[in-house]
Amino acid sequence: MDIKVHVRESEDDAYVVELGGEIDVYTSPKVKDAITELIDQGHYNLVINLEKVRYIDSTGLGVLIGGLKRVREHGGTVNLVCTNPQIKKIFDITGLVKIFGIFDDEAGAKKALA
C-alpha cells in the first residue's frame, strides 16, 4: 500500500497536486496534509491529478471535498484530472461529478481554473 504526493507550481500560476497509488483511510491524511498546506499558503486554485491513483475510498473523497470547501471560501476551486473508469464511477455514484470539475487531462483542468 502506497501513496505518492507531488506538489508543483505550473507555469500558469496554478498549483498541481499529483497523486499516485491508493488513497484510503491509512494514506488519506498524507493527501490532506499536502492540500491543507497549499491552502494555508494562500493557493486557492488547485488541480488534483488522480491519473496515477489506482484506488480511492470515502476517506479520500472526504479529503477532496474538504479541500474544495476550504478553497471555495476564498473564491477558489479544485479541478480534478481523472481517467480511471473505476474512480470516475465512484465520483459518479456519489454525485461528486456535479461539484468537482473532472477533466481527462491536466491542460483542460488548468484552463478551466482561469
Partner: peptide, 8 residues
C-alpha cells in the same frame, strides 16, 4: 471498495 468501507 465495499469491504474497505466496512472496515473503515
Amino acid at each position: 471498495l465495499a469491504i474497505a468501507e466496512a472496515c473503515t
